[in-house]
């Protein structure tokens, strides 16, 4: 298990992951900073406190699973994986380059710790359900965590999955929705609003918790509540800010999928801090 003890240390991890995100999308001059920055605290809580996992034994059948359904948000994923020790930090500058292990969208069989090939939205939750059903069938106590975007929840396939996870009462499954309110083109509420996600998912048989997705203590409490909730899956609706931590990226749809200029990157790193 990788465990970071204090909230201060977790906050420091989060800053380092944010810096990695900026480095990756700047070097690549492409990639997805907005939805990566919004989910930094979620991955920080999972990889450094909540999940049982061992970077030196990434294929451990008893490991907790993290499934990145919003598979374009690899910068935050690789940032967390390298901080956890799954691959050398020097490698992050190869992100999206030819011959790199750090593929644009997550792909299994590249760097250790990547759980699922993704990048086409609306598939990760079904995959997570399969993992959770297998755990139950084999009597293994690993848990499966699946991170979805809020825009991603417009994909109908997610609702097939929400329905079945509730039906199968998968209390070893926890979905996290990064509710940053912005999708590729524009704001979610002005594109295709999702309304009361908590009520919708409760109606599908889930336990729903809404938290400030940048408050690590609140996230830890929500994950703890998920662990203690039996007889149904839990969804954590994490209220976040797209582009969080970089003033000019925050809540601006333009920063969904592009890299900053060197000057902008310098400003971003200065704002994030060491």
């Amino acid at each position: 298990m990788v465990a970071t003890e204090t909230t201060e240390e977790l906050a420091a991890k989060a800053r380092r992951i944010r810096r990695h995100i900026i480095t990756m999308v700047t070097e690549a001059q492409s990639g997805h900073p907005g939805g990566s920055l919004s989910s930094v605290e979620i991955l920080t809580a999972l990889f450094f406190r909540v999940m049982q996992h061992d970077p030196s034994n990434a294929a451990d059948p008893d490991r907790d699973r993290f499934v990145l359904s919003k598979g374009h948000c690899t910068p935050v994923y690789y940032g967390a994986l390298t901080e956890a020790g799954y691959f050398p930090v020097e490698e992050i500058v190869t992100f999206r380059q030819l011959n790199s292990r750090l593929q644009g969208h997550s792909k299994v069989g590249t760097v250790p710790g990547v759980e699922m090939s993704a990048g086409s939205l609306g598939q990760g939750l079904s995959y997570s359900i399969g993992q959770a059903l297998a755990a139950r069938l084999d009597g293994r106590d690993y848990r499966t965590f699946c991170l979805l975007g809020d825009g991603e929840c417009q994909e109908g396939s997610n609702w097939e999955a929400f329905m079945s996870a509730g039906f199968y009462e998968l209390d070893n499954l926890c979905a996290i929705i990064d509710r940053n309110g912005v999708q590729n083109d524009w704001f979610v509420d002005e594109t295709m609003p999702l309304g009361a996600l908590d009520a919708k998912l409760e109606a599908f048989g889930w336990h729903a918790v809404t938290v400030d997705g940048h408050d690590i203590d609140a996230l830890l409490a929500a994950f703890d509540e998920a662990q203690r909730t039996k007889g149904c899956p839990t969804v954590i609706i994490a209220r976040t800010v797209k582009g969080k931590g970089v003033s000019f990226m925050e809540n601006d749809p333009a920063w969904h999928g592009k890299g900053p200029s060197p000057e902008q990157a310098e400003q971003a790193l200065a704002e994030i801090g060491e």
Partner: peptide, 26 residues
């Protein structure tokens, strides 16, 4: 019966659930 999972009329979910089960060794 414990090894048979129906997802209802939801073929996309069927493939995804099967993929997850396969990734877990099934």
């Amino acid at each position: 019966p414990d090894r048979f999972f129906t997802v209802g009329i939801a073929e996309q979910n069927m493939i995804g659930v099967a993929a997850g089960l396969a990734a877990a060794g099934k």
